[in-house]
Design a protein around this nucleic acid. Structure first.
Lengths: 191, 191
DNA sequence: CAGAAAATTTGATATTTATCAAATATTTAT
DNA sequence: ATAAATATTTGATAAATATCAAATTTTCTG
């Protein structure tokens, strides 16, 4: 059932049989319908999830508007970064944009695994590094590029998102206005 | 000599004596004068450094201008993220803004340490997590806030940088124009 | 210290992007 | 299939920020 996750972890660094069994025993599975919330602002992000299938959106609220900080889809690991690692109330909300299937593990369980199966720290380190690199890369594009180029970058790296996500969320993810994004798109079409 | 670094690592997770000795044996020390380069675009970032004292700037080039991506000072760990982790040519340059003293370890050595001293993966995981959180936090402010608020955030979180770094680098770090930053500062003064 | 270089500020103007308002198109639910 | 809700586009205008030019201040170097 959680084979995909176990496979992916194994590909990072081989897991012992004991650890594999332990993981399976401690995973919880959650299913979300479109518009269901996985996490609401103010709650502590207690679980780290792996997306087996589906798509979620992470967003903050600023005044009245929602600012999308992340999309998470199949094979992504998802957390509200600050809230999970510090076990503090989240500024972020996480909501399903599609019918979604998740496998998760509780923060405390994860800490226990890290101390009981030292080698799992290898996996943790490598996965964290990967997400760190991605975060830096996005930071780079946010700083370096104009709205149009940020859009083109997303189009180049995650074209499927543009099919699956309403433009208003794409716009706030890119840090631009819905109308501006719409104009950028029509500009690109006519060129 | 590298006591500060060893202390800081110990505070993350206690190091065995054997590992401590091994680390000391494999650390290299580098001293940079102001304007000396630690890394130039195209080179592979082969070392991960700890800043014992001093200040460095990490920047990209875009057309003719330099875009500052990061400042690193005392007690920071520094790398060109993508280049180091993937051992690929760097897009980034790293240059000293002040007289700087560094302790570093080679990528291969670090990998060897990770495999020989499994528990060091705990340290690696935790430190990577910390930098990941910081990266996400900066991303959040880059997306969420206007130029003025990004400046105020920096002023709030790293006031010393504003004393130590020329405004043009601060401006490009914040993703705004030097002149605009100057105006923001004078606005703030008169309010 | 003097001159040169670098850093910062200021002004005029252009460009980019946001905001407000509304029309049109698409999707969803009954 | 139809009405309602949601998403997208378009237009007019405003606000934020960038660009170009130059003056002023500060820092560095011989």
């Amino acid at each position: 059932m959680s084979d995909l996750l176990i496979n992916r972890l194994n590909a990072v660094h081989p897991l012992s049989d004991e650890l594999t069994v332990h993981l399976r025993d401690n995973l919880v599975t959650r299913e979300l319908l479109k518009k269901d919330y996985l996490l609401k602002r103010g709650q502590v992000c207690e679980y780290i999830y792996f997306v087996e299938r589906g798509l979620l959106r992470c967003f903050y609220e600023k005044n009245d508007e929602q600012i999308t900080s992340w999309f998470m889809k199949e094979e992504d690991v998802i957390i509200a970064v600050n809230s999970f690692f510090n076990q503090s109330p989240s500024e972020e909300n996480i909501v399903a944009l599609e019918h979604t299937l998740l496998h998760g593990i509780h923060f405390e369980q994860l800490q226990e695994i890290y101390s009981r199966f030292i080698e799992f720290n290898i996996v943790g380190r490598i996965l964290t590094t990967r997400y760190y690199i991605l975060s830096e890369e996005r930071l780079y594009f946010m700083r370096r590029e104009r709205a149009r180029d940020r859009y083109l970058y997303l189009l180049g790296t995650q074209p499927d998102l543009l099919q699956r996500v309403p433009l208003k969320y794409i716009a706030s993810y890119l840090g631009i206005n819905l109308e501006t994004l719409s104009r950028i798109r029509s500009d690109i079409k006519n060129s």
